[in-house]
């Protein structure tokens, strides 16, 4: 066996976490019957009493998790779609991210909030969203966004074991799309570390989630043209692996940051600023960002959705221009 999809990796990690620690439990909408994406399928039978269906009330899912984590449990919450998480934003901003700080570490919150994010599934405005820009602005919270199944498994386990609140982002388009031979595959076990997935001397592409896979596909086709790319899988967005970002930027002198979120105020701005601030002397071209256009949300109709999302062709075009600079 050992070939897993992203979804199977998540489900496997959840089962392992429930098995490993009696303090863990899962709560969320429809989780008892497996959830809308089937991430918790089969777990209720294996772990009776440790999956809790909640009302359709996201603030209560996160707020109750905070209380349970403070008490000493290790709640693993599911927000059905990342687009629905905003009614719980206050619980992240005003409460969870500040808990350790304001108690001077006397109490911290070992809790995970998992949520499917991202587009490319004809999910329209409210089932496609990228939310990382809001949540990476919250020191005290950790934000993890893997790309490969092996990392999903190991980093979800690490998130459950982490004493701090973790927002764990699962790209829904990759759930069944991305498969990987798990045995022997690289699996990051430490939150806060990025991985150089591919080495090339012409430029570096930074991405996460579905865009990491699109970037790798672009890098492959560019290689046939003689353009060699380094591709960094960021894995954790907060706290960010500054060292790996700067090392790769300095090595290649040209950088392309790709994300699915809209451009202005998007997470790419932070990476661009880091590189401009700390690797300026090494740059041979302006920092380039490829992101969705600044419109309120991802449209539903196929043509407009495709127009909104960066993909391997758009990435390759941007990388070619950058390589030629």
């Amino acid at each position: 066996m050992a070939v897993m999809t992203v979804l199977e990796a998540v489900r496997t990690a959840l089962g392992e976490a429930l098995d490993a620690d009696a303090r863990t439990f899962i709560l969320g909408e429809d989780v008892e019957t497996g959830g809308v994406f089937r991430a918790t399928e089969g777990l209720k039978a294996r772990f009776p009493g440790r999956l809790i269906d909640t009302p359709l009330a996201e603030s209560s899912i996160v707020g109750v998790s905070i209380g349970a984590a403070h008490y000493g449990m290790r709640p693993i919450a599911e927000i059905q779609f990342a687009d629905f998480i905003h009614s719980a934003f206050d619980q992240f901003v005003s409460e969870a991210s500040r808990w350790s700080y304001r108690t001077r570490g006397e109490s911290s919150l070992p809790m995970v909030v998992r949520t499917p994010w991202g587009g490319g599934v004809h999910g329209g405005q409210h089932h496609s969203q990228s939310i990382e820009a809001y949540y990476t602005h919250l020191p005290g919270l950790k934000v993890v966004a893997p790309s490969f199944p092996a990392d999903y498994r190991s980093l979800l386990r690490a998130s459950v074991d982490d004493p701090n609140p973790v927002l764990f982002l699962e790209h829904k388009r990759t759930y069944r799309l991305i498969r990987q031979e798990i045995d022997g595959a690289a699996a990051e076990t430490v939150i806060g570390r990025s991985r150089v997935t591919r080495r090339g001397g012409d430029l570096t592409i930074y991405a996460y989630g579905l865009m990491l896979h699109e970037s790798l596909a672009a890098a492959e086709s560019l290689s046939a043209e003689g353009i060699e790319c380094t591709v960094v899988d960021l894995l954790t967005l907060l706290p960010l692996d500054v060292e790996t970002i700067l090392e790769t930027a300095r090595n290649t002198g040209k950088v392309l940051i790709v994300h699915e979120d809209t451009l202005t105020g998007g997470f790419g701005g932070e990476i661009a600023a880091l590189i401009a601030e700390h690797a300026f002397e090494y740059l041979d071209a302006p920092v380039r960002r490829l992101a969705a256009p600044d419109i309120p949300a991802m449209p539903y109709a196929h043509a407009m959705e495709a127009f909104f999302m960066p993909d391997r062709d758009k990435i390759a075009t941007a990388a070619r221009e950058l390589a030629a600079y």
């Binding site: 809790i52 603030s59 109750v64 209380g67 008490y71």
Partner: peptide, 8 residues
């Protein structure tokens, strides 16, 4: 909500 979570 934290109180409810502690009670849970």
């Amino acid at each position: 909500l934290h109180a409810a979570g502690i009670a849970l």
